[in-house]
Design a binder for these strands. Structure first.
Lengths: 240, 240
DNA sequence: CGAAATCTTGACCGATCTCAACTTACGTGG
DNA sequence: CCACGTAAGTTGAGATCGGTCAAGATTTCG
């Protein structure tokens, strides 16, 4: 706890709790943070950290997919190119989130793009190394399985919504979910641009803009400056 | 190999390869079939098999989700009820496929329905038992992770398609994928009713019917009797 | 063989996309 | 710190896709 040993995962000096304390440290990543300091140190030994500037790609569609990427600090936009050439935003990674898992357990290529939204530090662990640790520390597998099942659940809900709900409903549900995650007295701060949100919701910026206006006219929300939206009537939104 | 010991997983008598040979046996399930006969036997000890008739539910939305279900024989339709009340078919399980994983690693409830399409035998292993085995035989985790990443990849592709492609394109891509899986000289046999297919593709039976006619008029396919469809121009389909 | 479900076809309507013009916000460099 | 250029966001008009309702044909299965 008291010994400061430096942290390979984030290139910053001050550490505690065995390894390090600063917020975005690798040791706070859910899939590793239950390990003994000793075990964690071992894992950190094989982790490489890279810095990316805004707009730089961590990986692109078609790249060999052989590593797990963990966001240490910053934010990453994950998106796909559909057969038609249209872009779809899949998700935004925040510190502690990881990606690249898809391909870890089957030799394959990246099917999406990972782009730094801002100054971002990424920790990378190779698939080979990770598999070692999975067999050595089976609890990591359980953690990843947990994470996977979350992702899968989310993805399937998303699919169902695209397949069955109107844009307005998808937007309303999205806003409500944002509220759960943040809840600063009923105000939501969109975690992405409206352009990206439109893509995430499977619509166009034009339609998104109109639907937001519509929700506002119906008294469900109030649009503030920029990305801030006041949620006035959650019940109403859920019924849209 | 030669000793016949009966198979708990399928309630049938004749077995070999240590445990059993008949086609749909649990020992052929990808997540277990790499284990030693001895290990597999141990797992089989905690598996319970249940028989379901056509239309019976293996589980319903809202049920406690605490078991892994493996299809031994028969077929299962997995579908969801969206917020709006509309149904969406998620997937069809064939012998060897499993489901219920979603909730295994997080206490939760079923978010879908599992309904037997025909006479079906289901093997069930409780989440608690499974977790034991995961820690005991770490290779199972790797297998499940593999399976999960497939599912996740599929689900995300599906999401992207719903978000970005037209019904006609989704249908065309679906037919092409069916072809890969079957390929009896360019003929596809739909694995489900057109009503279900419509639901799976996120559209209505009416629209599906029209789009199939359209594809036929354009010379890409030829509809035969019932569920059989002759694929005439794969290249063309992929460009739709 | 007949009821019930599935599938098909037609007519119509509404939701959402596209294109275009315009306004607003943002980041960069002087 | 401000000006400017570019990207993001908004608004309008028109076109299109796909859903809904309804009627009829076909298939399935007991």
């Amino acid at each position: 706890m008291e010994k400061e040993i430096g942290c390979k995962s984030c290139s910053q000096g001050s550490c505690s709790h065995g390894l390090c304390t600063h917020d975005a440290c690798i040791s706070r990543v859910p899939i590793f943070n239950h390990l003994e300091p000793k075990q964690m140190e071992e894992i950190m030994g094989v982790i490489k950290t890279t810095h990316y500037k805004k707009g730089e790609f961590i990986y692109s569609q078609g790249d060999a997919a052989d590593s797990l990427y963990i966001v240490n600090s910053g934010r990453v936009r994950i998106y796909r190119l559909a057969e038609s050439g249209k872009i779809q935003l899949m998700r935004i990674l925040n510190p502690g989130d990881f990606t690249g898992e898809l391909a870890l357990f089957r030799a394959s290529i990246q099917e999406s793009y990972g782009e730094a939204i801002c100054q971002t530090d990424i920790c990378r662990i190779s698939g080979a190394d990770l598999q070692q640790f999975l067999l050595k520390f089976p609890t990591i597998s359980l953690k990843i399985l947990q994470e996977f099942s979350e992702r899968l659940a989310t993805s399937e809900i998303q699919t169902t919504r695209f397949a069955t709900e109107k844009v307005e409903t998808r937007l309303a549900l999205y806003l409500c979910e944002c509220l759960e995650g943040q809840d600063h007295q009923g105000e939501v701060v969109l975690p992405m641009s409206k352009k990206d949100l439109a893509s995430y919701l499977g619509t166009t910026p034009e339609t998104l803009s109109r639907k937001l206006t519509e929700l506002e006219e119906n008294g469900y929300i109030k649009q503030q400056n920029g990305k801030r939206i006041q949620i006035i009537d959650v019940e109403g939104l859920l019924k849209v």
